[in-house]
């Protein structure tokens, strides 16, 4: 944000300011000029998509909410590096993913994941698990299992299995080929299955190849 002091001279006159339907590219240019209202527009336009992406990545709306704020804050800081070659939303998604990855690295160690799996197992066999909570419990179990995946595999799983993007879209998001994405998804599913089986959520399946 090269000129973010927002001195009156740097700001676009209200009459010339973009209406609600302003293109993202134009808003970005206004932001570069130090227009805080344009930043606000970009923020509100992209908030839900970033928030939802982080929801699926992390499985916790409250955490996703915090990290959405963090994503935009970091975007404000590094906006001068945005060269416009990618779409603004793509660039923003990249930042969100990095923020989420850092969060996971810092807070979710393997030991914690195992402990969570144990907790979830206890929840599963508890007598007071009503059916209405089953969906939530399954979500928690799944996300506990996801913590055992490497980041690329976790990302592949989230994009394909949770966000339900097509393979081509998911590959584009991850910056890999569709083939690589397909293999990652396959491996991720197998590892998730293994973790959930270990936690008692799925029954073991017969191995064909011994």
């Amino acid at each position: 944000m090269a000129a973010s002091s927002l001195s009156p001279a740097s700001r676009v006159p209200e009459a010339a300011r973009a209406p609600a339907g302003e293109g993202v590219g134009e808003l970005v240019e206004l932001v570069r000029g130090g227009d805080m209202r344009a930043w606000s527009d970009l923020y509100h336009r992209h908030y839900e998509r970033i928030f939802k992406r982080l929801c699926f990545y992390l499985g916790e709306a409250s955490v996703a909410e915090d990290l959405t704020q963090e994503t935009f804050a970091r975007a404000v800081v590094v906006l001068p590096s945005f060269d416009g070659r990618a779409a603004f939303s793509t660039w923003l998604f990249g930042i969100a993913l990095n923020v989420a990855r850092n969060f996971i690295r810092e807070r979710q160690t393997q030991r914690r994941a195992e402990r969570r799996l144990a907790d979830i197992e206890a929840l599963r066999v508890g007598p007071d698990v009503a059916l209405v909570h089953l969906q939530q419990a399954r979500k928690q179990a799944l996300y506990a299992a996801l913590t055992e995946l490497s980041e690329p595999m976790r990302e592949a799983f989230v994009l394909r299995e949770l966000e339900e993007l097509s393979m081509v879209e998911a590959a584009a998001r991850a910056g890999v080929t569709a083939n690589t994405m397909a293999v990652r998804v396959f491996r991720a599913r197998e590892k998730v299955r293994e973790a959930l089986t270990r936690g008692g959520w799925l029954t073991a399946k017969t191995e064909e190849a011994g």
């Binding site: 939802k52 699926f56 916790e60 709306a61 969906q135 939530q136 399954r138 979500k139 799944l142 949770l162």
Partner: peptide
């Protein structure tokens, strides 16, 4: 199971 998790996340979001 994944479908249930997906729905739970959507509901939260």
């Amino acid at each position: 199971l994944v479908g249930d998790a997906r729905e739970a996340v959507r509901a939260e979001a």
